[in-house]
Amino acid sequence: MTVEGFNTLEVELQRLKSEERPRIIQAIAEARAHGDLSENAEYHAAKEAQGLNEARVADLEDRLGRAEVIDTSKLSGDTVKFGATVTLIDEDTDEKVKYKIVGDMEASVKDGKISISSPIARALIGKSKGETAEVTTPRGARSYEVVKIEWK
């Protein structure tokens, strides 16, 4: 996991603990004040929200506790590996795309971050500028040429 990804998860964990948890506790208290809990939809909804929040907190604490954090700003090299930002050209469509290879928890294609375990990243690992990577996708085989490898 990158330092940025670790920090993002830490911020989410703090928000869940310091903002969501008290808000849900308040909602449960208000719902309890309405009386009969067996037919109180607000109470049951608040208890469900509490369960979901606590499950997410436990999941984040577990992942952060086991995370192997790598400072990508200290990485360099001429081949694609974890932490690299890679500019590619789809050889079939000539479309240019740019991806940063990150850990599974921080992957977001819309943000240009792909998981190290994704088919594209696995095909790119070890490639140098000018080399072609063959990727099997749900839409069939694709060929990408590595145009640029950056370390940011």
Rank of each mutant, 00 (worst) to 15 (best):
T136R: 14
Q26L: 11
S117P: 04
G103N: 03
Q14T: 10
A49C: 01
M105I: 01
R56M: 11
T8F: 04
A45D: 14
E95K: 11
G140Y: 11
G5R: 01
E134P: 00
V146D: 00
K47V: 15
V86D: 07
D92Y: 01
S115M: 07
M1Y: 06
G77Q: 04
E42Q: 13
E61T: 05
V102S: 06
S108T: 01
K81W: 02
K129F: 00
D94S: 13
L124G: 06
E39Q: 12
Q14A: 14
K81D: 14
R15C: 00
H44C: 00
M1G: 11
G5M: 03
E150I: 08
E48D: 12
I116Q: 09
Q50I: 00
K47R: 15
K110S: 12
A55L: 12
E150C: 05
A123D: 08
K81I: 01
W151C: 06
K127E: 10
K100P: 01
V57T: 04
K74V: 03
I149A: 10
A141V: 15
R23L: 13
E145D: 02
H34L: 15
E12Q: 12
D78T: 12
M105S: 08
E131A: 04
I24P: 03
K96V: 15
L60A: 08
I125R: 04
E68T: 13
G83I: 03
A107E: 05
G77F: 09
A58R: 14
L9Y: 08
D90N: 14
G5N: 09
R63F: 07
E4L: 01
E145L: 09
A45E: 14
G65V: 09
E150P: 06
R66V: 08
V57L: 04
E106S: 14
R122F: 02
L75I: 04
R15N: 12
E20K: 10
E150N: 10
K152F: 06
V11P: 00
V86I: 10
K100N: 02
I116G: 08
E131R: 04
T85Y: 05
L37E: 15
A46M: 09
K47W: 07
A55P: 03
S76H: 07
E10N: 13
E134F: 06
K110Q: 10
K74Q: 10
T132D: 12
E30K: 11
E91Y: 00
A31C: 02
